[in-house]
Simulated assay, not measured.
Amino acid sequence: MTRETAIHPSSVIEPGAQLGAGVRIGPFCHVGADAVLGDGVELISHVAVRGATTIGAGTQVYPMATLGAPPQNTRHKGGRTTLTIGANCMIREGVTMHVGTDTSRGATEVGDNGNFLAYAHIAHDCVVGKNATFANGATLGGHCEVGDNVNIGGLTAVHQFVRVGDNAFLAGCSAIVGDVIPFAVASGNRAKLRGLNIIGLKRSGLPRAEIYLLRRAYRTIFDRSRTVAENVELARVEFSGSAAAMKIIDFISSRGKRQYTVPPLKGGAVDDGDDED
């Protein structure tokens, strides 16, 4: 049975806001006229939903979160831009997510099943995939692209325009100033790669043989005797049969001329991952 919509009398729901079935809005919330709340969305209390913000079904939002505020970008001229949040997300205390910029892509998008812990921030024009986990204080600058199943540790900051590939793990208290390839672990102030996210790969159900191929591809791509560009072309031929390896290869190949791919830590092993059961 679907619960009835319930709105605390202290909350303000502006005319024009669209509320799905079973929405629950606790005390002292403010929902703007251009907002859309899907079925079963819950705003626990003291939540502000501003601008053209759509929140997917089943998402729960904790106190002091602000969703859909204008972008922190001086190029924004005040035009209508959007924030779209997927279904079944958990948005904890003080999280901020901004709409896009009208001089850029104009939209910020967050996928389903995200878990955004206290004070995490998603800036204007970012795209975040499914099943993301942002620990406390994790921050994205504007225009970032984050893949599926990405984990970002507490107090880690990702520079604007950076891409993070699927299944990557960004360790806590890190500064991410370049693209992080899929399946990798990155950490440090001006982060470097610390190998592959072997634990995450195992949890995802990737077969051991595929993980072995992926590690070989990683070593080939970052072989220091050649340039990365040369290594990528060699790996493209050698590992064409591995979908996971090709995801890394295509990710690097698709970077823009001004984009920088985070390399492995100098002086350390090219792959520090642990492939033991």
Rank of each mutant, 00 (worst) to 15 (best):
E276Y: 08
G16A: 06
T139A: 15
E42D: 13
T261P: 05
S10Y: 12
P264C: 05
G142M: 10
P264M: 05
I25C: 06
P263K: 13
G154V: 00
G147F: 10
A57G: 08
P70I: 09
D34P: 04
A6T: 14
A157M: 12
C29T: 00
A6Y: 01
Q259H: 07
V270W: 02
A48F: 11
N131W: 12
G200V: 05
G129I: 11
H8P: 04
A171S: 14
E210R: 08
A157W: 06
A171I: 07
M64F: 13
A168S: 14
G22K: 12
F28K: 03
N149I: 10
Y218W: 12
F169I: 00
Q160H: 13
F183H: 09
C29P: 03
G86C: 07
D271V: 12
I199P: 00
V49A: 06
E233Y: 00
V95P: 01
T108A: 12
R190C: 00
P70D: 09
T59G: 00
H46A: 01
Y218G: 04
A87S: 07
I122L: 11
D272P: 05
I122G: 01
N231M: 09
L234M: 14
Q18W: 08
F183W: 13
P263A: 01
K130L: 05
Q72M: 11
A35K: 08
G106R: 09
M97C: 05
I44L: 12
S204Y: 00
G172W: 04
T2A: 14
A138P: 09
L37Q: 06
R258C: 05
G78Y: 07
V99Q: 08
T81N: 01
I91W: 01
Y218D: 01
G256K: 08
V41T: 01
V237G: 09
S10T: 15
Y212N: 12
C144I: 09
V23S: 11
V12H: 13
I176H: 09
L155A: 12
G147Q: 08
G26F: 12
I248H: 11
R24P: 03
P264T: 07
H159W: 09
A6F: 03
G154W: 02
V158R: 02
F169M: 06
S204F: 06
F251C: 06
G129S: 08
I221V: 14
L234T: 15
N149V: 03
S242H: 10
D275F: 15
R80W: 06
R215V: 02
F169E: 00
I248S: 05
A171T: 15
T81W: 03
F239G: 14
F183Q: 05
A118G: 13
I25Q: 11
F239E: 15
V36Q: 08
G51R: 02
V270D: 01
L206K: 04
S104Q: 05
L234K: 15
A6N: 08
G51T: 10
R226L: 05
L67F: 03
I25T: 10
E230C: 04
M246K: 14
N113R: 15
A48V: 03
D102Q: 14
A33R: 14
L234P: 02
Y119P: 01
S242C: 13
G58N: 06
V228D: 07
A229F: 00
L265K: 07
F28H: 13
D34W: 03
N231S: 04
V61Q: 03
